[in-house]
Simulated assay, not measured.
Amino acid sequence: MPLKWVLHWQPNAGTTVNSQIINEVTQCVESFNGVKEGRWKATITFYKPMIREQALAGDFPRDFLGIALPEQPNKYYLIIRLQRIVLEADSSIQMIMEKLQSYKSRVSLNFEGFQYQLGDFQLRVGKVLPTHSENLRGIVMEVEYLPISSMEKARQVMEDFMDIWQQALSKRSLPGHFMHMEPNFAEYGLADQYTSQHTAVQYATVMAQLIATVQAVQARN
């Protein structure tokens, strides 16, 4: 499948994300003659175990992430970050977990916005919102290079595209920038050929960064 990078908006110190930044980023994509193709949505859920007997606590992962991706509607991705494990399951696993009541959803975040086509690239720009809330938590961008699925072969093309993109965005003098933090996929047992599991791991990394950013802002306040 095509390779993609998942980036998050890193606000400048002392600033926060707001909907005006999303509007500016969207306008920047459209200034590249990006063709709007419709909406997209991914969801990350943070699960905690419901342990009835403390003696069993060591048998359960302390927490894990569940990720629903728009390109794989029949799949659900589970990530245990401490052990560097990523699993692909049938989407029905969510109902099974609910019935078993072994894990409880603590927090869910929606990543949603618009999708654009720019030649061989597909861009998705989206807000990060808690479920049932309009309280903006962050901004994400997916950059997908459609012709290639090898991460190493596509790296130079992706870096060149991002250089052009960052230059265009910098002209708008926004209080921050998009960051790409590539996880160590090998730690998760993932190879060079790109898969949806790579995307899930990237979203887990982005979520960790978003939480760290929110905590840093709260600490300053």
Rank of each mutant, 00 (worst) to 15 (best):
Q193A: 15
K75I: 03
S108K: 13
N74T: 11
Q166Y: 04
I139P: 04
A191K: 11
E187V: 03
W165V: 03
Q101T: 15
L174N: 03
M97T: 12
Y188W: 06
R155D: 11
V128K: 00
Q193V: 15
E159R: 10
Q166A: 09
M95G: 14
E88R: 13
I93N: 07
S149I: 04
I139H: 07
E144P: 02
K104E: 08
V140R: 06
R155H: 09
P183E: 05
K99W: 05
L82W: 10
H177V: 13
H132A: 15
G138E: 04
M141R: 01
Q122F: 00
P130S: 03
F121K: 00
D163K: 15
Y145K: 06
I96M: 04
H177D: 13
L190M: 01
K75C: 09
Y116C: 00
L100W: 00
K153I: 14
T131C: 10
Q94P: 00
M181P: 04
M141H: 10
S196V: 07
E98C: 05
Y203Q: 08
E112A: 07
Q94M: 08
A186M: 03
G119R: 06
A154S: 13
M141G: 04
T199I: 10
F121H: 05
D120K: 05
Y145M: 02
F161M: 07
Y103D: 02
R155K: 14
S102N: 15
E142T: 03
L82R: 15
Y77H: 08
L87H: 09
V157N: 08
I85N: 05
F114N: 05
M151I: 12
S149P: 09
G119V: 03
G176H: 02
P147Q: 08
A200F: 01
Y76K: 08
S196P: 06
D160G: 10
S108W: 04
A186F: 05
Y77L: 02
Y145N: 08
S91L: 06
S170I: 10
S149G: 12
S196L: 07
Q122W: 00
R106N: 05
Y116D: 00
E142Q: 11
G113W: 00
A200M: 02
K171F: 12
D120R: 10
K153Y: 11
R81W: 01
V128W: 03
I96N: 01
Y145E: 02
F178N: 08
S91A: 13
Y188L: 09
E152Q: 15
S170V: 11
T131H: 12
R155Q: 14
V107C: 11
T195A: 08
R106V: 08
H198K: 14
S173C: 11
N110G: 02
M95F: 14
Y203D: 01
L100G: 14
F161K: 05
M95D: 15
Q122H: 05
R172T: 10
H177Q: 15
F185H: 12
N74V: 07
E88K: 13
R172I: 11
M181Y: 12
S105G: 12
F178A: 09
V107Q: 12
K127M: 06
M151L: 09
M179A: 14
N74H: 14
H177G: 09
P147W: 01
V143M: 04
I139G: 01
S133F: 03
G126K: 00
A154E: 01
E112H: 03
M158S: 07
Q83P: 01
E98N: 11
A89E: 12
L169R: 02
Y203L: 13
Q94E: 11
S196Q: 08
M162A: 06
D120V: 12
L129E: 07
A89S: 15
M141Y: 02
L87A: 09
P175S: 12
